[in-house]
Design a protein around this nucleic acid. Structure first.
Length: 258
DNA sequence: TAGGCCATCTGGTCCT
DNA sequence: AGGACCAGATGGCCTA
């Protein structure tokens, strides 16, 4: 990874390759196809479409045109993938926006820290959604506890309570504010950095943050501490992104196939 | 103007 | 082998 980083940077600096414009390879919608598409590809070693010293298996030789075509194809796939991701993010955002609005100014659909009228950032959306899920889990647990007390108090058999009572659960949310992120949590989600990729690094920090509970269901049923929604004395996650309560730091989950 | 957020490109790795 | 996924790099846009 370090190699990738330094190599890419070094190469880019070395060759002063613009990402868009003459000398760039890509097929951005705003970069007309064929606009300076070639030079970088022809500058060979930058792309591993050729056989690289590292590549063990021999790769078949591609003509510049074929390389172009392949690169275009790969870029297009990646763009599509990211667009799909954004569609899903928008859908999630749409659901989360009501919970992100401040109770003091209901017309503002934003998380604290975000200017009014602005849509939730990706990271805010994700953190908010996670909080919401955890909150639902704790509400469910509370419901179970109350039902248990009631049934005991009424001398009702302690046998299984009808599943329906547990199925939906009523989220015992005092108000949307419970889900709010603190201004600090949002601000700190993007630690200032001299690098131009601070957002990227914070995102990757979030991705690497191992505060995600081991299993979604188990976690949602486990007691939840809300260090993001109020002072609980629970030490915040050191990752600086989610600032949520500590969970067992587990290894990254296995990938789900589509 | 600096910093945050984002889209895109890119090369590497993993999976089917 | 090809596609999906990931993460770093880069540049553009916007806001405080």
């Amino acid at each position: 990874m370090m190699n990738v980083l330094s190599n890419t940077t070094a190469r880019a600096q070395e060759q002063s390759i613009p990402l868009c414009g003459p000398g760039s390879v890509h097929d951005l919608p705003h970069c007309p196809p064929g606009f300076g598409l070639n030079s970088r590809l022809n500058a060979a070693p930058l792309l591993s479409l050729h056989s690289s010293p590292r590549a063990a298996k021999p790769q078949k030789e591609l003509s510049p045109e074929e390389q172009q075509e392949l690169r275009r194809k790969i870029n297009s796939r990646e763009r599509k993938r990211m667009q799909d991701l954004n569609i899903a993010m928008d859908a999630l955002r749409e659901v989360m926006v009501p919970y992100a609005s401040s109770s003091s100014s209901p017309s503002h659909s934003h998380a604290p820290g975000a200017p009014p009228g602005r849509r939730l950032s990706k990271i805010s959306t994700l953190v908010l959604a996670r909080n919401y899920i955890l909150l639902l889990g704790s509400s469910l647990q509370e419901m179970r506890r109350l039902l248990g007390e009631v049934s005991i108090g009424m001398g009702v058999s302690t046998g299984p309570v009808p599943r329906l009572l547990f199925a939906g659960g009523w989220p015992l949310i005092a108000g949307p504010r419970q889900l709010l992120l603190t201004h600090e949590s949002l601000i700190s989600s993007a630690p200032s950095s001299s690098s131009s990729s601070s957002a990227a690094s914070s995102s990757s920090t979030a991705a690497k943050c191992a505060t995600i509970p081991p299993g979604p269901m188990e976690a949602s049923l486990a007691p939840v501490h809300w260090s993001c929604v109020g002072a609980t004395g629970v030490p915040p996650c050191p990752c600086g992104v989610c600032r949520l309560s500590r969970f067992n730091h587990s290894k990254s989950a296995p990938r789900f196939s589509k």
